[in-house]
Amino acid sequence: MEDAGIFAADPMTRLRAIMRALRDPETGCPWDIEQDFASIAPYTIEEAYEVADAIERQDWPELRAELGDLLLQVVYHAQMAEDAGHFGFDEIARGIGDKMVARHPHVFGTESRDKSAAQQTRDWERVKETERARRGAGGVLDDVALGLPALMRAVKLQKRAARVGFDWPDAGQVLDKIAEETRELVEARDSLPAEKVAEEFGDLLFVMANLARHLDVDPEAALRGANAKFTRRFRFIEAALADAGRRPQDSDLAEMDALWNAAKAAERKA
């Protein structure tokens, strides 16, 4: 039977009705009916990254569309949870609303707003610690999500450990550790099996993430910037070669490196 909510004026009511119709076991879409949490999770992650990409490019019409795609993911998971009898969308919305009120006593309670952003961050973490204890998450690292991108998870693990004093006091010691891990990676490359090389490479990346934290740099954003810069400069190489009727595969490293340096010089002048 057609869900009347599909014609509702309220956009959220309509979207939820559309999802119910797609998941209807008798009249819904066969693909949507077959999905479960695990199969949809990769799409959820992908949509979150596409939101970040639209923000990075400051493409506001695209951001509106991508936020819609991400919202659909929440509605999709909520419908699957409701189908399985776990919880529904209203419980999700109520839960996050309650959490936001509890975590902002300086806005919704009696605490003073007259404090720095740093103090508010410390207060936020204190409330989260209380919530973790109530859930029985006893270990310091217990609830750092496994599904996070590895670089982001490394920073979160390090931040959590730092709160209990397990941290280098300054960036200089982290730089010393990077030099040490680099030497170990070189040694592994020259004399150890591939799995040990991968392990040492992972150690180096982990310490690089720690350096980003000490420098107050978002490593994910920094790497996205480096990716964009590489893409921009390589396209400069492609364009320069195309002007001569050639392609990168028709060139060599020395010529492309010279064009790369030309791209850098052009950026400095811009």
Rank of each mutant, 00 (worst) to 15 (best):
M1K: 08
A4K: 09
A4N: 10
G5H: 11
M12Y: 03
L15A: 15
I18A: 14
A21V: 06
L22H: 09
G28A: 09
C29T: 08
W31A: 14
D32R: 11
E34R: 11
Q35W: 01
A48T: 14
E50T: 06
V51E: 06
V51H: 05
I55M: 15
E56I: 02
E56T: 09
R57V: 02
D59S: 03
E62H: 01
R64I: 06
E66W: 00
L72F: 14
Q73A: 13
Q79P: 02
Q79E: 15
A81N: 01
E82R: 15
E82T: 04
E82F: 09
H86F: 10
G88H: 05
G88Q: 09
I92R: 03
R94Y: 08
G95L: 09
I96G: 00
D98E: 10
V101H: 07
A102C: 02
H104N: 14
H104G: 01
H106L: 00
T110V: 10
S112Y: 08
R113Q: 07
K115T: 04
S116G: 10
Q120Y: 00
T121R: 12
D123R: 04
W124C: 12
K128H: 05
A133Q: 12
G136Y: 01
G138M: 00
G139N: 15
L141T: 01
V144Q: 09
L146H: 03
L151A: 10
R153T: 02
A154C: 03
A154W: 07
K156T: 00
K156V: 03
Q158S: 04
R160T: 06
A161I: 00
A162T: 02
R163S: 15
V164K: 08
G165D: 08
W168G: 00
P169E: 07
G172L: 03
A179L: 14
E180F: 07
E180K: 13
T182G: 12
R183F: 07
L185M: 13
A194S: 07
A194G: 03
E195Y: 07
K196V: 15
A198S: 11
E199Y: 11
F201M: 11
G202E: 08
G202H: 09
V207T: 13
V207P: 04
A209H: 13
D218E: 11
E220R: 11
A221S: 14
R224G: 06
A226G: 06
A228S: 04
K229R: 08
F230P: 00
F230C: 04
T231V: 06
F234L: 04
R235H: 10
F236M: 01
E238L: 11
E238D: 15
A239V: 00
A240Y: 00
L241H: 06
L241V: 05
L241S: 07
G245N: 13
R246K: 13
P248L: 04
P248H: 06
P248F: 09
D252S: 05
D252N: 15
D252A: 08
L253V: 10
L253P: 02
A254T: 09
E255P: 08
A258Q: 13
E267S: 05
A270D: 14
